[in-house]
C-alpha cells in the first residue's frame, strides 16, 4: 500500500475493496457454504462498515468479498442508479477498489441491488448481490430464533402457509406483494429480500449467481445459477404477479414493474419503469410512451 502525501497530510489508503483479506476469506467461505446449501442462511461475522445498518452493510460486505479488479459494478436502489444510497455505495467501491462502475445491467459483472431485480435478463458471468434487512421468512409468526432454526432444519413450513392463509382470510387474496417467500431447490424456504413479488419469477432458473447479505442479522444465503425457485401458494390461490393496466408512460414497455409518480396536487400521476437503466435504454432505442418528451426536445 502506498500512501500519497497531499499537502503534508498522508492520504488514507484502503485494502482492495475496503475489507482486509482475512475477513474476505471468512465471507467467501460463508458464500461457498451458502451456494452449497441453496436457500440456507449461513451465519457470518459481519463487520462494522462505514455506513449505518439498513444502508446495505450486508450487501456491501458480500460485494467486497466477490469483487475483483476487472469487475464492473452496478448499484441499484429500488430500480434506480441515481438515488443517494446507490450513488454512495458506487462511490465507496470506486474509492476503495478503483473498479469500473456502470449503470448498464448488460455491462455490469457484479450488481448490488436493493428491492429490485433488473428487467434486463441476467447472464452466467454476472453476480447479483441483494441487500437484506430481515433474512428470516418465518420471523413474522415465530419470534424465537431457536425455534425458526428448528423449523428450517426439519423443513416444517406449515407456519409460512399460515401467513399466506391469513392474507387470503383478511384480503380475499394473497396480499403479500414484496418479500414474498420462496422455496429454493425444493428444500429451504427463503425470504427473497423486499423485492416486489413481480420479480420472484426472475429468481427461478436464473443463469446468474444470486447472493443475499444481511449485515445487521449477520446472515448470508444464496441461489446458485439455474436453481428452481418456487413462490409458495395454495392450490386454489396460485401465485400471481402484479399486472399493470398501462405501459410505461416514458418508454411504452409492458410486462415490467412500474412506479407511480405524482405529477401535481390535482391528482395527476404517471406510471413509469422502476428500472431506470432499462427505461433509458428503450428510450434511446426510440421507444416512446404517451408522456415522453418529443424527440429532440430536452433530455
Amino acid at each position: 500500500m502506498n500512501a500519497h502525501a497531499v499537502g503534508g497530510m498522508p492520504e488514507i489508503t484502503y485494502n482492495f475493496a475496503y475489507l482486509d483479506e482475512q475477513t474476505k476469506r471468512m465471507i467467501r467461505r460463508a458464500i461457498l457454504k451458502a451456494i452449497a446449501v441453496p436457500g440456507y442462511q449461513v451465519p457470518f461475522a459481519a463487520r462494522e462498515m462505514p455506513m449505518p445498518y439498513g444502508w446495505g452493510t450486508g450487501g456491501v460486505q458480500v460485494t467486497a468479498a466477490v469483487l475483483g479488479p476487472k469487475d464492473v459494478l452496478k448499484v441499484i436502489d429500488q430500480g434506480a442508479d441515481d438515488t443517494t444510497n446507490a450513488v454512495a455505495i458506487r462511490g465507496f467501491f470506486e474509492k476503495t477498489a478503483r473498479v469500473a462502475t456502470t449503470t448498464s445491467a448488460v455491462e455490469a459483472t457484479v450488481i448490488q441491488t436493493r428491492h429490485r431485480v433488473p428487467e434486463t435478463p441476467l447472464a452466467e458471468h454476472q453476480i447479483l448481490v441483494y441487500q437484506v434487512p430481515i433474512p428470516e421468512p418465518l420471523r413474522f409468526l415465530e419470534p424465537r430464533e431457536t425455534e425458526t432454526r428448528q423449523l428450517h432444519a426439519l423443513a416444517e413450513y406449515g407456519l409460512m402457509h399460515v401467513k399466506l392463509y391469513e392474507d387470503i382470510a383478511r384480503h380475499g387474496h394473497i396480499a403479500t406483494t414484496y418479500a414474498y417467500p420462496v422455496e429454493v431447490a425444493g428444500r429451504y424456504v427463503m425470504d427473497p429480500s423486499p423485492i416486489p413479488k413481480f420479480d420472484n419469477p426472475k429468481l427461478d432458473d436464473c443463469p446468474a449467481l444470486q447472493l443475499f447479505g444481511a449485515g445487521r442479522e449477520k446472515r448470508i444465503y444464496a441461489i446458485p445459477p439455474y436453481t428452481r425457485v418456487r413462490s409458495l401458494d395454495f392450490e386454489d390461490h396460485p401465485f400471481k404477479v402484479q399486472r399493470f393496466a398501462k405501459p410505461c408512460a416514458l418508454c411504452a414497455a409492458t410486462g415490467v414493474y412500474l412506479d407511480e409518480v405524482i405529477l401535481d396536487d390535482k391528482g395527476g400521476r404517471m406510471f413509469v419503469c422502476s428500472d431506470t437503466d432499462y427505461c433509458n435504454g428503450r428510450q434511446v432505442a426510440g421507444h416512446r410512451g404517451e408522456m415522453a418528451a418529443p424527440v429532440g426536445e430536452g433530455a
Binding site: 406449515g158 407456519l159 399460515v162 392463509y165 387470503i168 395454495f234 392450490e235 386454489d236
Partner: peptide, 12 residues
C-alpha cells in the same frame, strides 16, 4: 388450520 398446513394441506 396450522396443523393441517403443517402436515401438507395446500388447498385454502
Amino acid at each position: 388450520g396450522e396443523r393441517l398446513m403443517a402436515v401438507g394441506w395446500r388447498h385454502y
